[in-house]
Amino acid sequence: MKRLVLAGAGHAHLHVLRALGEAPWPGVEVVLVTPYPRQIYSGMVPGWIAGHYRLDECVAPVLPLAGAAGVRVVGDAVCALDANRGHVTLADGGSIEFDVLSLDTGARLALGAGLANHPGLLPVRPLESFVEKWTQVLPMLLDDDNARVAVIGGGAAGVELALAVAYRLRRETGVTAPRVMLACGGGLLPGHAPGVVRRARAALAGQGVELVEQRVRADGSALETEAGVPLAADWVIAATGVGPPDWLAQSGLTLAPDAFIAVGRGQQSVSHANVFAAGDVASRIDAPHAKSGVYAVRAGPVLTGNLQRALAGRPLEPYRPQRRSLYLLAAGPREAIVSWGAFSASGRLAWRWKDWIDRRFMRRYQCPGKR
């Protein structure tokens, strides 16, 4: 009996669990290590904040998926890995040996410039903690018309969250004065076409989001630009860049230049044939791409097949990520911005498209067997 350890319940591993539920792999014991009994789908969180979804609509229940697949669940987090000896260490001090390991643990939020010490900090990672904290903060924002929110990060996540928060506060309080600020010192939507950026600027202006195109820092509870201009913010949503888990450096795995796990065309570690990785914790050195849930979802089927092939001693199947991906950015109200290479569009039809894609994706894991 061989043992497959799945570390983390990210988007790609959801696909593995679903596949195991449909057809178990003979002679394989599967162990899932995850600190959370559910996986919150990041693509729907802005819509939940805006009030378009209930939280249960944005959640894949991991425990029922694992139960249907005959997978043993260990409710803990990986804190160390010895790839040469073939075991992972858990936060509670225990360890689990593996024949094949698949890592889909995500990445940590890279906080800097004193932001980690801000008393109103709401880091978007881990997502489970962010959702819990936002549920507590929202009533306070609705009760205090003067409370302000700063969103740090000009990528897709920062733009979507700023628009969602501004829309929700305006809709429920009727206050149109700016209460949300988006700080994007690294640029607004870097990597997206100029037309997408223009549409995002228009959407932010339409929702009254103050755009600060400078880097910001925190000194205790005070927020300011690097030039020393003070910024009013009671709550700070950090949607900044990501960094690798600290334990990767001592794992024995070969790492990519960005310090994440270096994987090749089959999502296989370039140094250890029995280790695979997908999602933000991995970096394709042969086909670099952005760290986005879009790529993690696409990697799920090939990861599933290659894990089964590796356990059976069969050749792997190559997978080359698409050169460009479709992004549908939630724009606050039931509207979205389409980003596809040089093409851009926006409006209610784009939202309906995004909503259909997101709901279809979640049905696969909320109702196994449905497509």
Rank of each mutant, 00 (worst) to 15 (best):
H192W: 08
G51K: 08
R348V: 14
V159R: 04
G75Y: 02
A113K: 09
G332T: 06
D145A: 09
Y295L: 13
V74G: 02
G67C: 11
M1A: 13
A116R: 15
P244D: 03
A262S: 08
E213Q: 15
L4G: 05
R148W: 07
A299Q: 14
G75S: 13
K291C: 02
H289W: 05
A60E: 00
S325N: 11
N274Q: 09
G158A: 10
D145L: 12
V263R: 00
A312I: 05
R323A: 14
N274D: 15
V297W: 04
A205H: 10
P194S: 06
Q207A: 13
V216I: 15
G106L: 09
G195L: 07
E57Y: 07
L349E: 06
R108W: 12
S283P: 06
R348N: 03
C79E: 11
P288V: 10
Q308M: 05
P64N: 00
V124L: 12
A83S: 11
R309Y: 06
A193F: 13
I96D: 01
E128L: 04
S129I: 04
G341Y: 15
C184L: 07
L32S: 03
S292T: 12
L349C: 09
V180P: 13
A60Y: 00
A23S: 15
A310H: 02
D246V: 14
T173S: 01
G27S: 07
P139G: 02
A350H: 03
D246E: 13
P35T: 08
L211Y: 09
R363Q: 13
R179E: 13
V236T: 05
P230S: 06
R298H: 14
G191T: 10
E335D: 12
Y327M: 13
L63T: 06
Y167S: 04
V263Q: 02
V5N: 00
V338F: 11
V31D: 02
V62L: 00
M181S: 15
D286N: 10
